[in-house]
Design a protein around this nucleic acid. Structure first.
Lengths: 318, 318
DNA sequence: AAGCGATGTGAGCAAATGATCGCTATATGA
DNA sequence: TCATATAGCGATCATTTGCTCACATCGCTT
């Protein structure tokens, strides 16, 4: 009579169940081991696997007063439309982790709208963290997701580009990668790509996006662009000398948020986020090293919304 | 220059921050203590306070296969429109805790709709848990919340009735309590209440609700109605003898889900959930002792949707 | 002002946890 | 076929955690 139940509790299932019993049920790992009929060590491993694989999501259901104050102060100072400040994670903490769930909440907010819209996204660790922190089960098929940044890397590595893809995968929305090199060897090659009709289509879509989510990269010596091999050391030096402090979607700007007309900016393939957009343009970024980059982006209104963490917020206001 | 920040980190704020550092940041309590400048013991107390007060919410981001199978089986067997099965919490686990977040998700689903609607809710521990497990920050001002059950208790205790109130409070929606006794001393008194125009208005609202959320109570010797003093032992005996196995919103039914025409049912003040509604009527209930009550409600289609836990689901199918 | 209860605090301690190590089984590929 | 990598497992052990107890503090009542 009982229907066919219990095929093969996959490893994921077992881990999820262990995590559930641990965090929701409050059982000890010993009890979980007994419940699942495994050794305590295995139970412990299942629990940590559940955490590591992001099966367990923790959210804080209380807006800490100080963070609200900081949000208000940032909003006033930079004329933002949206602002979220997550509590910091202490000295050695990972800023990306701190802001991931707040950023996820911000994105979910847009994805849940019934009105079909176009969501443009950049790349970077922060955005990646945001997507990972999103809840499962959100269906956003009515929206279109478009990448702001080229998806052809010099070394062919794709790890940099899977933010849109992962997101599209997660919410079952159509997505439009931008089929151009992140940064072309020459301005001419870049122009050749942009002359192609399919490329133009994606570019047009990105330009009319209803909302933009981007990370903000610093242009100091630990610049993501350098680490990922998109700019050479020499070019970085050149742009630093010209005042470069940050970049958004690969486009480099100075301390006032003015895009520079040199270096890689002449060969960057992606769509530039124009300053002063009338639609939301949300920056997701935190970390001591990014402060002047973020400030530049805010000053020129390359972004008019911000998700950051507490120490970064304080530094921006200082 | 720095704006006025740091008035008084309230106890809640501190607890929230400690919980954040612990669960999101992964710091040890010792590190948290140092970070916050308190003793380790205080840090530990703050963390547990954060959990106890529901500041920390844990969600499982993975639907365990077995639970999906059970949902399908229940849906097929009882012709449900919606069904969620949460993993069980093991032998000594609290069933309410297990289903709270799944139920919250189900309710949030409705509240997030833009279309204004009327949401009718019952009472009980399960619904209370559901509301507590809801995320903060959901705005549902477009909906109206109406209580199915009277809000006048024999002993004047209000703890039983604050489900609608807490919910309304949380999502900032208007709410309509039902200003009648849960159970009147006589049918006549009950009728007198229902003749009053303001009462009729609420009753009409409840009757046309677009979605109904109710708990399911058992009528065994540990019946909630008995424990809360709404029925006497003698009446319970009488109804049990007549086949009573469960109740929804105070209305008692038998194993087939047929409402009985005796005992308190002649004096119950609230609105009866009619069998076979064409709109969603979601039962939130789990626990071994409730199985036959739930089965009755399902068979007669007093509820056409169910949120329960794994062992209960298995028992319902057995 | 003394008494009293509620609340909070730190020390100590037992239990729970998670990291490490060496072992085994399985796969991978030359 | 064999060598080697890889992953999982149980045992051991240092660290982390949360509980209990004895005491201090504060506010309120008598």
């Amino acid at each position: 009579m009982t229907p066919r139940i219990d095929p093969e509790p996959s490893l994921h299932d077992e881990a999820a169940r262990a995590g559930w019993l641990y965090y929701v049920g409050g059982l000890t790992q010993d009890q979980i081991a007994r419940e699942l009929g495994v050794s305590r060590q295995r139970a412990q491993r299942l629990v940590s696997r559940a955490v590591a694989e992001g099966l367990i999501h923790v959210r804080l259901n209380h807006r800490i007063g100080v963070c609200l104050d900081l949000e208000q102060a940032l909003t006033d100072r930079f004329g933002l439309t949206r602002c979220r400040v997550a509590p910091g994670l202490g000295a050695g903490g990972d800023a990306v982790r701190a802001i991931a769930s707040a950023a996820a909440g911000e994105l979910e907010r847009f994805l849940r709208m019934e009105e079909p819209s176009v969501v443009a996204v950049g790349t970077g660790r922060a955005l990646r963290g945001m997507v990972d922190a999103m809840e499962d089960g959100i269906e956003a098929g009515q929206h279109r997701l478009v990448s702001l940044i080229g998806n052809i890397a010099p070394d062919g590595s794709a790890s940099f580009f899977d933010v849109v893809m992962r997101l599209a995968d997660k919410v079952h929305a159509p997505h439009y990668p931008m089929p151009v090199p992140v940064i072309s060897p020459t301005p001419e090659e870049n122009a050749a790509f942009h002359a192609l009709p399919p490329v133009r289509k994606v570019v047009d879509l990105a330009r009319k996006a209803d909302v933009v989510f981007v990370g903000v990269g610093q242009m100091s010596n630990d610049a993501p662009l350098l680490k990922d091999g998109f700019v050479s050391r020499a070019e970085l030096d050149e742009m630093q000398a010209a005042g470069a402090v940050g970049e958004v979607a690969g486009w480099v700007f100075d301390a006032q948020g003015q895009y520079l007309d040199l270096g890689t900016n002449r060969r960057t393939g992606g769509v530039r986020v124009e300053p002063g957009l009338d639609r939301p343009s949300i920056g997701i970024a935190a970390g001591e090293t990014k402060v002047s980059a973020i400030r530049g982006a805010l000053l020129a209104r390359i972004v008019n919304g911000l998700v950051t963490d507490e120490p970064t917020a304080r530094a921006l206001l200082a």
